[in-house]
Design a protein around this nucleic acid. Structure first.
Length: 280
DNA sequence: CGGAGTGTTAGTCG
DNA sequence: CCGACTAACACTCC
């Protein structure tokens, strides 16, 4: 269930394995997971991998792209000389593949395979022309770790929203890549109450939140993403952001900032961990 | 066993 | 345009 750092990690891991290889076949086990035209992909060499927001882009020689969104439970598992996995951590990472959650299998000319697994089937793989990719990306605000993103943009965006700041921070149309884990941690690091209306943040608070969000996202990328839930221990599979997590999943534990007990509550329908004593 | 909860987001309706 | 609510779906946990 990846956010930006997890997708970035998958991108980096897969890059050295698939760039330069030719896709010889695609086996679609679950039609809903694949939206596009297989003809645009078969026989094409992969020239590059890219990431925008939480989307992974596989760029093909003919200019078309495979765009992949893992949503909550998607996984990409590459099986070559070794197995490399990323995405929602389950036993599928180490089980025999295909598993019952395998929706799509990509075959390469060297007989190696890439499995797209997805338990809840929210995720998808699409084939898109360069124009369609552009249109898709234009629906998103700048990535949270985009070097060109400025605090003034966020001050302007948050300033005209009456929704709570946590929800605003997770809106990909405003700024892309921040999901529930990193939103909780960023708000704790910036000492801001997740329930506060976005427009009520002072400029200083927006700057603080912006910097905090970049800090936790970059930390996530450095740690290879987070691996929580049904973590299956296999070398190289799991990111380690959870070892430096601030508040996510830590109900009842001490706030890393002030030591008070971390509270769990619902904010806009999502589980939210925060510290009532220092996040104001 | 029933119901809630899950690292996401699109669509609908007011 | 904005925001609240719901659905898409499978599985685990209490």
């Amino acid at each position: 269930m990846p956010e930006l750092p997890e997708v970035e990690t998958i991108k980096k891991r897969l890059e050295s394995l698939v760039v330069g290889k030719t896709i010889t076949q695609i086996e679609i086990l679950h039609p809903k997971s694949f939206q596009g035209n297989v003809e645009q992909v078969i026989g094409q060499r992969i020239v590059a991998l890219s990431r925008r927001a939480k989307l992974l882009q596989i760029i093909l020689e003919n200019g078309y792209s495979l765009l992949i969104h893992l949503k909550m439970t998607g996984q990409l598992i590459y099986e070559g000389a070794t197995r490399v996995g990323g995405g929602h951590p389950t036993a599928d990472w180490v089980k025999k593949l295909p598993s019952k959650h395998t929706r799509i299998i990509f075959y390469f000319s060297d007989k190696e395979r890439l499995f797209f697994n997805d338990i809840r089937v929210f995720g998808w793989v699409r084939t898109l022309s360069p124009e369609e990719v552009k249109r898709e990306f234009s629906k998103y605000g700048p990535d949270i770790n985009d070097a060109n993103l400025s605090a003034s943009y966020l001050i302007e965006q948050f300033g005209r929203r009456s929704i709570n700041i946590k929800q605003a921070l997770m809106m990909n149309q405003i700024v892309a890549g921040v999901g529930n884990i990193y939103a909780c941690d960023a708000l704790n690091l910036a000492k801001i109450d997740p329930q506060k209306a976005a427009y009520q943040l002072t400029e200083n608070e927006v700057v603080r939140l912006f910097e905090a969000a970049q800090t936790v996202i970059n930390r996530g990328i450095e740690k290879g993403g987070a691996t929580v839930e049904n973590y299956v221990h296999v070398d190289g599979f799991a990111g380690q952001y959870q070892s430096v997590m601030l508040v996510y999943g830590k109900e009842g534990q001490a706030c890393p900032n002030c030591g008070a007990k971390i509270i769990k509550m619902k904010v806009a329908g999502r589980g939210t961990y925060y510290c009532m004593s220092c996040q104001l």
